[in-house]
Design a protein around this nucleic acid. Structure first.
Lengths: 207, 207
DNA sequence: GAGCGATTGAAATGGAAATTTGAATCGCCT
DNA sequence: AGGCGATTCAAATTTCCATTTCAATCGCTC
């Protein structure tokens, strides 16, 4: 069945904004892909900015499920870390067509706009908070907030790298294809790598 | 002393392109900051694109020193890893005014252009190759290329994260100031974290 | 099927920004 | 000083794109 013009514009906008960012996108291209007239953008959304806001709102809404948190299984933080990474990685490094939000965020980071604040508060901060509690449970109980923060960011860094670094990675390692199997293997590697480092920090503090 | 117009345009262009990217930058602003006439851009560089290429060329040239490599001290790969991270981190997360190339690369990654290829070949690949040899020396000798690559990327990920993630990080952790002392502490953390993970991978293979 | 608000379409309008132009000025050499 | 190529300047010109306009069409109610 055929979606109405309004929704077709939102879908097309998601792809074009993801590819080119807000500035680089043209409503001509969006309208062409949506098989709609350019005037429809202004009619339905009041302008390019209105469409952008609407696209972002829908994208954020579409992936608002909470991440695995320590509360799910307080006695096994190592398993929770694996679960968290397995949950996050496909979300940040899946194909752009599947998760345009990631590409849009990348554009936002290069040219911050007010909507970046919205993305941070609604998406990034809850994820970071959940991960921090898992990491805290894996570190010695007297670890300072600063130490916990640095370890948390070391884990997150490995996950988002495959997203932020994609344009560079596919040039340096063109043979690596980020399909589902590769993402699963990566998720396993990142969890093992991080747990090894965290365990060692824990052991060292015990001596 | 006063630089000539050509060089003033390149310097001003570096800042403006770093802040706004190629698309977002206007030659009006560049000319204004360089205290030059907009026609000078076309006269000296043939256009905005020509100036961009020239800025990028100078920036790449300015930081072409080779990274610490395993050949410097083949018997102590752990120290080499520390040296490498201590070398790379200030280069990727220093202030934008000091290293505009980082900001420009971020813009490039969000909207890849032909010059990204140049950045990758001249800067990224040599650094990645050097780090890979260090990591290989820290892993069991029978580690596959794939395993070495993943561990290498886990190390790099932690370094570039503070650059790519800066706009988000300063919103989530506004209290963290990336001054020289913090960069040094981070460099130490990343090296310790990574060495712990690598050692553990090595020990596990030995059993 | 007539009327009417909601939507769509093609063609203007307007503004911002890159590029071009041609005259004015500078630096230097004789 | 005078000439000449290199450079700078202000003022067009052109291009690209968002937005507006207004006429045409659709979908629904009476």
């Amino acid at each position: 069945m055929q979606l109405d013009t309004r929704q077709r514009l939102i879908n097309a906008g998601a792809h074009v904004f993801a590819e080119r960012g807000f500035q680089g996108a043209t409503i001509q291209e969006i309208a062409r892909r949506a098989e709609a007239n350019i005037a429809a953008v202004n009619y339905h959304f009041g302008g390019k900015a209105g469409l952008y806001a609407e696209v972002l709102g829908q994208q954020i809404e579409a992936r608002r499920e909470p991440p695995p948190s320590l509360a799910d299984d307080p006695d096994n933080p190592a398993a929770q870390l694996r679960a968290f990474i397995g949950w996050l990685l496909p979300r940040v490094c899946g194909p752009a067509t599947q998760f345009p939000l990631g590409q849009m965020q990348l554009h936002e980071m290069a040219a911050a706009s007010p909507v970046l604040d919205k993305v941070v508060e609604l998406l990034v901060r809850p994820q970071l908070t959940a991960l921090r509690e898992i990491v805290r449970a894996l570190l010695p109980s007297n670890a300072s907030d600063e130490v916990v923060r640095r370890h948390t960011l070391s884990v997150i860094a490995q996950c988002v790298f495959y997203h932020h670094g994609a344009p560079v990675l596919e040039r340096v390692f063109p043979e690596v294809l980020l399909d589902d199997a590769e993402v699963a293997a990566l998720s396993d590697h990142i969890a093992t790598f991080s747990l090894a480092a965290l365990r060692r920090a824990h052991d060292r503090a015990a001596t």
